[in-house]
Amino acid sequence: MEEGIITAIRVVPLDHYVLLSFLLFSIGAAGVVFRRNTIIILMCIEMMFNSVNLLLAAFSAHHSDPRAQVFVFFIMLVAAAEVTVGLSILVMMKRNVDSVDVNQLNRLKG
């Protein structure tokens, strides 16, 4: 089994991982524009983070370089901090305008 996992890095071509993460990133980017619910927009942003993480991990495994995986770890840390701030903004928005619709947030529009 261990041999199988070790050879799996070589069996799956890098292109497949690149295409998969492009696909996930595009779905996330389209979702940010497609939806109006702020919480789903935040989730789409998380999905885009994850596609980039997957790409970094794939290149790290194919280059045999552990530093990219440390980089993914730091991205996860930043994403955790970003989500807490985003959700607290959402809570504040729900309290102030009683809605989570991003189209309500146009007070700065001229």
């Binding site: 996992i5 995986q69 770890f73």
Partner: peptide, 11 residues
């Protein structure tokens, strides 16, 4: 699961 396939167990 993809990370496990890449043998990135920590991640």
């Amino acid at each position: 699961g993809h990370y496990v396939l890449l043998n990135a167990q920590f991640l």
